[in-house]
Design a protein around this nucleic acid. Sequence first.
DNA 1: CTCAATTTGTTCGTATGTATG
DNA 2: ACATACATACGAACAAATTGA
Lengths: 279, 279
Amino acid sequence: MSKLQKTYDRSRVPLYIQVASVMRQRIESRAWQAGQKIPTLVELEMEFQVARVTVRQAVEILREEGLLHCQQGRGTFVADKAVNRHWVKLATEWSVLVESIKGNVPRRIKVDNPPAFPTLAEGEGTPAPGYVYLSSLQFKKDQPYGIVNTHLAKQIFERDPKAFTEHPALAVLADLDNIEVQHAHQTVVIGSANLQEADLLKIAVGAPTAECRCVVIDNDGIAIYVSDITYRSDAIKLHIDLLAGSRPHSRVGDRPDEASKSAGCDTTRERSARERLLS
Amino acid sequence: MSKLQKTYDRSRVPLYIQVASVMRQRIESRAWQAGQKIPTLVELEMEFQVARVTVRQAVEILREEGLLHCQQGRGTFVADKAVNRHWVKLATEWSVLVESIKGNVPRRIKVDNPPAFPTLAEGEGTPAPGYVYLSSLQFKKDQPYGIVNTHLAKQIFERDPKAFTEHPALAVLADLDNIEVQHAHQTVVIGSANLQEADLLKIAVGAPTAECRCVVIDNDGIAIYVSDITYRSDAIKLHIDLLAGSRPHSRVGDRPDEASKSAGCDTTRERSARERLLS
DNA sequence: CTCAATTTGTTCGTATGTATG
DNA sequence: ACATACATACGAACAAATTGA
């Protein structure tokens, strides 16, 4: 049995896909540079301790993805094409968040049995007397990248039902008068796609996702907005300005709104990690 | 061919593992509550459109994990045991970050051919004349959860080489005098484990990770500290106080350091998404 | 130009794992 | 539990293209 199989047997993912993943990462991280010749099949089978055919299968995957091209007798080469990625930057500040989603046009999803109440953890406030459930899909360049499931306090929703169904709820919420916000926070963990999420986001079941929960609490401690957002893991990037609030103990001149410049829901081109794990 | 196989053929992960993933998520998200009977094998094969044996294989996986227990003639039940998780909270503010890592005792890793310079993207400053490379593994309850690879400007390192090798570099850096920090930020994307990372973090090759880059730039625009941190995806959680900096347009009383209370490198028990994708 | 070395490409045969009915 | 089909992985042998001596 190969070393890969032995050492990492926790995973029951096919070997040639694991090998392809490692090689893909080397390309995207520039460890194997564009245009360069990669190690020979013999060297690769020695490194990964797998059979010739298995390496070939991995190479074939990357060749189909356009990351490698092979020449009999010469070797296998990294494609010249840029492997840059587009990211949706996750906002880390209220005003930026609100501003960034104003332009979004959500595609509403019909939900059969919406949960009447959100499940609130400690620190997420107390439930409102009633909620409406809004579900939508977010797109960027016709590609789905996020699913938004929102519990919005009924009393808030009924102030402007039309706006809330046609625009992002948080943007409408921010524009309403007489709303007193005591708390607004967002948590992010890495999860994996279930059946419905995989289907909507066009990823594999079990592929990694970013699970965000955004909670807005009013002055009475009531959770008026509770949103569970599931992003494709390859679509989002977080940028945190560590000096946004206070300053470290060194002297630094004031930089009025440096943070807001970089955040928002813009896309950027940058080098990075990988395309997707299981696709 | 089953619907799963057809629809989600992007993934070449075995069907029974996909089914197990979906069922695991339902248990951890409380959709299937502790102690309750889950749907019968017949119902499950209909829902997932897979063969009886395939569902059984999935159930067997979860039974071995202790999440389910079966009783012939009665049905299959969700175990009562709590499925809570521990999280390492990722700090989102400089002072909190520094404070949170002060207690950490890194286990140094020897590196054969350390890269002399970090690869700096736009907005990450200009390179210092020289760097030292520090590599370490972070533990929580004897479990590895993060790999830290740091480029520290040589001139900074040489002010106190001993401290920098024995303590977290960022903590030492923050305590040095005469350091002028212009910029400090952290970016986070979701990546996948390569061979070395999988080995160190005890996860599968290709399993999702959180790839963090922390950059500190001095007043001359030089990147004096560039750290690439790879976390197990199931170990970390981000908590962002959206109101930490400014305030939304509603009236809110001052909450001096609400942010710093919640952040830091503490562990918490909470419900969540999944144990691991590929393990 | 030929030859040999190198490297990718192809094809067996075998064993085991996955999935169905 | 059984028979069937296909995917995964191995090892080995051989074919075809490229390179440089």
